[in-house]
Nucleic acid binder design. Structure first.
Length: 852
RNA sequence: GCCCGGGUGGCGGAAUGGCAGACGCGGAGGUCUCAAAAACCUUUGGGGCGACCCGUGUGGGUUCGACUCCCACCCCGGGCACCA
């Protein structure tokens, strides 16, 4: 018997598979299609354990689907634009493209060493002009549809990366990439109007039954829908007269309007200084605005802080009762949510309550819990009798409205009767209307960096900002740039200078590039038609393969990439390019691979393990199997070197068992010539049952991506086979008595069950030991017969009052009464002197006898 | 504060409401060997000489029967957060 030698087998088979284009996707539509996709990697250097787990899961799913009869699209590419390449280039005085393509070559070689079944003809590299040109094309189409906007607003600026960031890319006030503290800057930037799709992005989460709940929850949180109303407050002039000017607020609690005792503006409220001019408090307001602007993003992200505010000297009129209320500037008002102005109701909002306490503002009670001592006094009272209360905290829950004019006595709270009535009255009076607000902001996509997809726009002093005509795409990134010397696209004159496509006058090219997340928002579409040079993809190709049946990637993209991709899909659908709403039908979010102590692997900690080293030592199949055996894919996994040795032992053992089964083990045979052959027939039948039981179990487990328990079941089959082989006599008997060549069936079954997991191991045995034609990976998945998996006799536990007291063997098909009788007989001694109240029979499991 | 997950042997982890701990690691003992490694066999939740007893974060509940369902609480991980 040839020893299992992955170092000889794996390279040889990888070469053969490559030469045969073994994983080129058949696309004749003769079999049902399945699209299995793993998130494409950033070419950051060598592959790490996160790649190994992610891509091993994907490869097992893809290979299994192929054996289950699907034509499987399983492509791979690289998310190749981005800052690390640029930083590396500056450091080495080189070019980002060099670093990027070198890393891609390294990673691709590693993926091939891992035996991943990608259709390499469909490789997509995001920094190739043939790819990014279509990203530019999509940008122009988005622009045509009114989904591109240039606007000036306060943005997040990372001083280290020297670029702006999208909201989604700021984590607790720091840059998601380098974790430097971000600064707020007022800049004119490019946006995708993802907010136009906010409602649909939220609603369609309900379609995604195949997504983890936590991801959907995170997206819903991020989109942050609030139902409420806009209310207009008329501004009182400096002379105390009405002005017919209004400030609008957004509120979800219009029911509490009668309790509004002051009014707030954000420090960044547009036109604030003009508004307060002449009211006598300009200096204090100015000081507060400056103090607020000094609060760092990190502090801001800490959550609740002490509130600060100053009176502006101005007043507005509450539209429900005509009362004048003072306008304050307060640093807890968020400028870019709602209108940046807020009506303050201290009795019904904890923040306003704290503010009122601090600055000694009145807290008129207008909503009360029914057990509030004040309720007896104010129940039904419409006019304000009590002007302020001395509570511990605001009542944010539901309650009954008091001192609220004609609304007194109604229920108050979010979406309450009182809220509806007051909004209706405001609408009738033209002072308010229903409004839905979202927390989601538009997606800031421009970046002040070189290594990205150039935004195809031109600035003309006569025509304004105009799109680059489609026939001039792609706007190529210039290659001759000296980043180390500080050159940028903006200073690269041969790039920046151009002519206006509208009027022909000299003009300036846009020198910002697009967020790399724009590249990853549609790459899965490109894979369906990767070499198309007249369109990003043909709709027929995309609609044939998409949506992705199974998407696999890290949880860190729960919001960023997954939200952006959903947005792109919906826009492409509205453009008529796609005929579905959601890009990823099923989503598997793998947990992180940590070291044996549960620590994140990092270079600085020195606990990084190298997949390449492990392949060198054990071969790819062992690495794959060890990764799968670690635990459920979506959980965090603690990597332990012992697992490699264990799975190496298992593949060796299974290797020998397969040889033994087909009589090729030679001297090393596991057959025991001295073993007792008396029960050979029974053991052969048991072997056959085990084979069918395990195929059923492995099939069910792989369907649910329970790779660890699937492997455990295969181990059980191998163990059972190994035990069985100790009977030489049994081999002969089972072939005669079970109506077929069982040994060969068991051997082929073991090989096929392991094929998705250990593809080289299985292929070698399939072709060179079992001597079959073709690849094991093109074979149909083994079938199983649930009837054959059933035993003739089963063991049942006999319980008395839920405690196991005995075991009995009964025929599998025994009648309930017979089982009950056998059980009672088995524990007869213990039942003496006791009343049997009843007995419960659970077929093939247990009998529970209830006694008193 | 709000919203999601999750607490099971020495360890990773199994268990459609039905014998808790599959499978593997580790441990103990053995076979083979001059010896070791490898391989193979036996054993391995805790306690007790034993019949047995105790065990799935804690406390209740439902049930003939609860790791599993319900209620309350504790701890760990993640997301959101002055969002009006």
């Amino acid at each position: 018997m040839k020893q299992y030698d992955p170092h000889e087998i794996e390279p040889r088979l990888q070469k053969a598979w490559e030469e045969a284009s073994a994983y080129k996707v058949p696309n004749d539509g003769s079999r049902p299609r399945k699209y299995v996709l793993e998130m494409f990697p950033y070419p950051s250097g060598d592959i790490h354990m996160g790649h190994v787990s992610n891509y091993t899961y994907g490869d097992v799913i893809a290979r299994y689907a192929t054996m289950r009869g699907f034509d499987v699209l399983h492509p791979m590419g690289w998310d190749a634009f981005g800052l690390p390449a640029e930083n590396a280039a500056i450091k080495r005085n080189s070019h980002p493209a060099k670093w990027t393509y070198e890393n891609i070559a390294t990673q691709q070689a590693s993926f091939q060493r891992m035996g991943f079944s990608y259709d390499w003809d469909r490789k997509v590299v995001a920094c190739d002009p043939e790819y990014y040109r279509w990203g530019q094309w999509l940008f122009l189409k988005f622009w045509e549809r009114g989904l591109v906007e240039r606007k000036n607003s306060p943005v997040n600026w990372c001083p280290d990366c020297k670029t702006v960031l999208a909201n989604e890319q700021v984590e607790e006030g720091t840059c998601w990439r380098c974790h430097s503290e971000v600064e707020k800057r007022d800049l004119t930037q490019w946006y995708f109007k993802i907010t136009d799709y906010a409602q649909e992005l939220l609603d369609d989460l309900d379609q995604l039954d195949g997504w983890p709940e936590r991801v959907k929850q995170q997206q819903a949180n991020w989109i942050g829908r609030s139902e409420g109303a806009e209310v207009e407050f008329e501004v009182v002039g400096l002379d105390g007269a009405a002005t017919d000017e209004y400030i609008t607020v957004f509120t979800t609690r219009a029911d509490t309007l009668f309790g509004c005792s002051f009014f707030l503006l954000a420090p960044e409220y547009p036109g604030l200084m003009e508004f307060v001019e002449g009211a006598g408090h300009e200096a204090e307001v100015q000081a507060l605005v400056e103090a607020a602007s000094k609060v760092s993003a990190v502090e801001r992200a800490q959550g609740e802080r002490e509130k600060h505010g100053v009176f502006t000297g101005r007043c507005v009129i509450n539209p429900v009762n005509g009362e004048q209320v003072p306008v304050w500037v307060a640093d807890y008002v968020v400028a870019d949510y709602g209108t940046g102005a807020v009506m303050a109701v201290p009795c019904g909002d904890q923040r306003d309550f704290e503010f009122a306490r601090k600055y000694d503002l009145p807290i008129p009670p207008i909503i009360l819990a029914d057990d509030d001592p004040l309720f007896a006094q104010l129940n039904g009272v419409k006019e304000r009798q009590v002007t302020s209360v001395d509570w511990e905290e605001a009542l944010e829950a539901e309650g009954t409205l008091v001192q609220s004019g004609e609304y007194t006595g109604m229920r108050g709270g979010k979406g309450s009767e009182g809220e509806a009535a007051i909004v209706a009255a405001l609408e009738a009076a033209g002072r308010g209307r229903r409004k839905v607000e979202f927390r989601l902001r538009d997606w800031l996509i421009s970046r002040q960096r070189y290594w990205g997809n150039p935004i195809p726009a031109i600035h003309c002093e006569h025509c304004g900002v105009v799109p680059v005509p489609e026939d001039q795409l792609p706007v190529l990134l210039p290659e001759d740039i000296d980043l180390a010397a500080g050159e940028t696209l903006a200073t690269h004159e041969s790039f920046a200078q151009c002519t206006c496509p509208v009027c022909g006058a000299p003009a300036r090219r846009e020198t910002d590039t697009m967020d790399t997340f724009t590249c990853s928002s549609w790459y899965y579409m490109r894979y369906t038609d990767p070499r198309n040079d007249t369109a990003p993809f043909a709709p027929e190709a995309a609609n044939a393969w998409l949506p992705v049946d199974q998407y696999i990637g890290g949880i860190e993209h729960a919001i960023l990439h997954l939200l952006y991709s959903r947005f792109f899909t919906k826009v492409c659908r509205d453009m008529g390019l796609l005929n579905f709403d959601e890009p990823f039908t099923n989503l598997l979010c793998q947990g992180m691979v940590l070291d044996a102590h549960g620590e994140v692997m990092s270079k600085s900690k020195g606990n990084v393990v190298s997949p390449e080293d492990m392949i060198d030592q054990y071969g790819a199949d062992v690495v794959r199997a060890a990764m799968l055996f670690l635990g459920p894919p979506e959980k965090e996994k603690l990597w332990n070197e012992d697992g490699l040795a264990a799975l190496n032992k298992f593949l060796n053992r299974a290797w020998r068992v397969v040889h033994d089964l087909v009589g090729k083990a030679g001297e090393e045979t596991l057959f025991d010539p001295n073993a007792d052959a008396l029960n050979a027939h029974e053991k052969a039948m048991a072997m056959k049952r085990e084979r069918h039981r395990v195929v059923g179990k492995v099939t069910a487990d792989l369907d649910r991506y329970n790779f660890n328990t699937a492997l455990a079941a295969i181990m059980e089959l191998v163990n059972a086979t190994s035990d069985f082989l100790h009977l030489r006599e049994a081999e002969h008997r089972m072939n005669c008595e079970t109506g077929g060549p069982l040994t060969r069936d068991v051997a082929e079954t073991i090989v096929k069950l392991l094929a998705p997991i250990a593809p080289h191991w299985a292929e070698e045995l399939w072709q060179n030991v079992l001597e079959n034609e073709g690849s094991v990976h093109k074979q149909p998945w083994p079938t199983y017969d649930p009837e054959l998996a059933k035993a003739d006799e089963v063991e049942l536990a006999v319980q008395i009052n839920g405690k196991v007291r005995s075991k009995i063997m009964v025929a599998a098909e025994a009648a309930e009464d017979d089982i009950r009788a056998a059980a009672l007989a088995a524990v007869e001694g213990e039942l003496a002197g006791k009343d049997v109240v009843k007995s419960i029979v659970i077929p093939s499991r247990l009998v529970n006898i209830v006694v008193k």
